[in-house]
C-alpha cells in the first residue's frame, strides 16, 4: 500500500474545494434557501401535509439528495477529467500507486465534499423548518453510501469523457431529470396510476425514499428495497471501475 499517495491526492482534492469556497459552500446555501422560499413558502403554503409531514420538512431529504447526486458526480468526474485534459495525469500513471488507491483517493475526496455539502444543506434547512431525524444511523448510512456510489459513477464519467461537453452531458441529461422525477418534491403516491409504475424504474426514487424514511420513518417504497437498490448500483459502479482499470480503458492507451 502507498497511503502517502492516497493522502496526497485526497489533500489536493480537498484543497481545491477550499480554494473555490464560494462555489463549493456559499452557492448551495443560497440555492437551498431559494428552494425553501419558492417551494417551502410560496407553493408549500398551499400544500399542507404529505404523509403527515409538513411540506417544508418533506422536501429536505429530497433537496439533500439532489445536491448530493449532482455534486458527487461533478466533483469526481471533474477531478479525474481535469488532469486528463491538461495532461498532468502522466504523473499519476507513472507513480507507484495502485488502481484501488487512485479510486479511494479521488472518490473519497469527492464523496467527502458532497457529504459536507449535504450537511450544510441540512443545517441551512433547519433554519427554515423544524426537523427531526428518526433514524440518524441510517440517515448517515444513506448519505455516505449515496455519496460514494455517485462519486464512483462520476469517476467513471470523468474517465469516459473525451470533451467537456460529454462531461456535462450525463449529469444534465440523465441525473437531473431522474432526480426531479424521483420524488424530491412530492410523494410518488401523488402520481397518477401508470406514472407510479414507470417511476419505479427510476433508481433515484429508491435513494430519496430510503433517505426520507431515515428522517420521518415514512417511505414510498420499503426501506429494504431502497438499500438493496443503492447497493446494487454501487456494485455496478465498482464492476465498471474494475473493468476500466483492468483494460487501461482511456487511461493507458
Amino acid at each position: 500500500m502507498n497511503p502517502r499517495a492516497v493522502w496526497a491526492i485526497y489533500r489536493v482534492e480537498m484543497a481545491r474545494a477550499f480554494r473555490t469556497v464560494l462555489q463549493s459552500i456559499i452557492s448551495p446555501v443560497i440555492s437551498t434557501s431559494l428552494y425553501f422560499v419558492v417551494f417551502g413558502s410560496a407553493i408549500g403554503s398551499r400544500i399542507t401535509e404529505i404523509d403527515g409531514i409538513s411540506y417544508g420538512a418533506f422536501i429536505v431529504p429530497g433537496l439533500m439528495m439532489l445536491s448530493l447526486l449532482t455534486q458527487s458526480i461533478s466533483n469526481a468526474s471533474f477531478a479525474i477529467y481535469f488532469p486528463k485534459f491538461v495532461g498532468s495525469i502522466y504523473e499519476l500513471l507513472s507513480a507507484p500507486v495502485s488502481y484501488l488507491e487512485i479510486v479511494i483517493a479521488y472518490v473519497g475526496g469527492a464523496a467527502t465534499k458532497s457529504i459536507l455539502l449535504g450537511l450544510i444543506i441540512l443545517a441551512t434547512a433547519s433554519l427554515f423548518v423544524p426537523l427531526r431525524i428518526e433514524h440518524p444511523f441510517w440517515m448517515v448510512a444513506f448519505l455516505v453510501l449515496t455519496a460514494v456510489t455517485f462519486s464512483l459513477f462520476g469517476f467513471i464519467i470523468g474517465i469516459w469523457a473525451k470533451t467537456f461537453e460529454q462531461l456535462q452531458l450525463v449529469p444534465l441529461l440523465i441525473i437531473t431529470p431522474l432526480t426531479f422525477l424521483g420524488g424530491s418534491f412530492y410523494s410518488i403516491h401523488m402520481l397518477p396510476g401508470v406514472w407510479k409504475t414507470i417511476t419505479l424504474f427510476n433508481p433515484v426514487v429508491y435513494l430519496i425514499s430510503g433517505f426520507r424514511w431515515s428522517f420521518f420513518g415514512k417511505a414510498d417504497v420499503s426501506v429494504g428495497v431502497s438499500l438493496g437498490m443503492t447497493l446494487a448500483f454501487l456494485a455496478v459502479c465498482i464492476a465498471i471501475v474494475a473493468w476500466i482499470f483492468k483494460t487501461g480503458y482511456r487511461l493507458r492507451n
Binding site: R4, A5, A8, I9, V12, F82, V86, A95, V97
Partner: peptide, 18 residues
C-alpha cells in the same frame, strides 16, 4: 495543475511516490 503553488505541487509529487 495551473492553480497549485510551486511548493504544493512539488510536495504532492513526493507524496504520490510514497
Amino acid at each position: 495543475d495551473a492553480f497549485e503553488t510551486v511548493w504544493a505541487t512539488v510536495n504532492y509529487s513526493r507524496g504520490l511516490f510514497g
